[in-house]
Design a protein around this nucleic acid. Structure first.
Lengths: 126, 126
DNA sequence: CTGTATCCCTTCCGATACTG
DNA sequence: CAGTATCGGAAGGGATACAG
């Protein structure tokens, strides 16, 4: 046995967390809401270049079902809806931080490799 | 600005890490290899109940491409292949630990809720 | 402004059969 | 033992149009 077994028989906590985070934009949504505390629908849309209304809505609803996001609707016209992280969502974001660091480190390394290759190809002879 | 911005413009480290971990069995593969250091193909297969040979092979190859897994082939008959984590793979596993903890906590809470509901339904009257 | 509804394409994955 | 090949269903996601 290792110091801290992280998986029970047949079920791994990683999978349970993945269920909730997998989806093309959920990581970014989490990040946007962690950064800004409160965001309106159109603000999130602008913060996630390329997302469609359909996917943004769908992901937000799923995250609401999963207890990560709070949705506050104001009965006004034009309508206004504000999204924010729940305590549960904030804790997920914290648990995600080391993975984000790892990913950025990975990107950094990839870019360094590309630069190395480019340099090697750029000077084939003296 | 927060204390430690984790995302640059347009690209988030979370996504870079997700790219590498997304896949139905990759989390479990990582876990198996972290637990056992070295595993043969058939051992992994047994450790991942339900996985098909196709998906196990495919995921292992992708993880090898991504530099997470080392594949050692022994020229014997019958053939023997041993899989293990690279340093890179181990660092990913460590970055995943908090997420695993979060997921297990989530499972625990869900089960507690289920029990509560069951109890509430189990004793409708004295 | 904040969504729904629909169509359609791509990717993911399981099942099965076959190979060195 | 450790794969490869192929098929087909299911799920994810984009584009577009429409609605309250």
């Amino acid at each position: 046995m290792t110091t801290t077994p992280r998986c029970g028989p047949y079920i791994c906590g990683i999978d349970a967390a993945m269920d909730v985070v997998s989806g093309k934009w959920k990581g970014l949504i989490l990040w946007e809401l962690a950064e800004h505390e409160v965001r309106r629908f159109a603000e999130l849309r602008r913060g996630l270049p390329g997302v469609s209304e359909k996917m943004l809505t769908q992901h937000l609803r799923e995250m609401e079902q999963d207890g990560l996001v709070h949705r506050e609707v104001y009965a006004e016209v034009p309508p206004r809806v504000e999204y924010s992280l729940t305590e549960h969502g904030r804790s997920l974001n914290e648990a995600l931080a080391p993975l984000g660091d790892w990913g950025r480190e990975r990107i950094r390394r990839e870019r360094a490799d590309l630069v190395d290759h480019a340099d090697a190809e750029a000077m084939p002879r003296p």
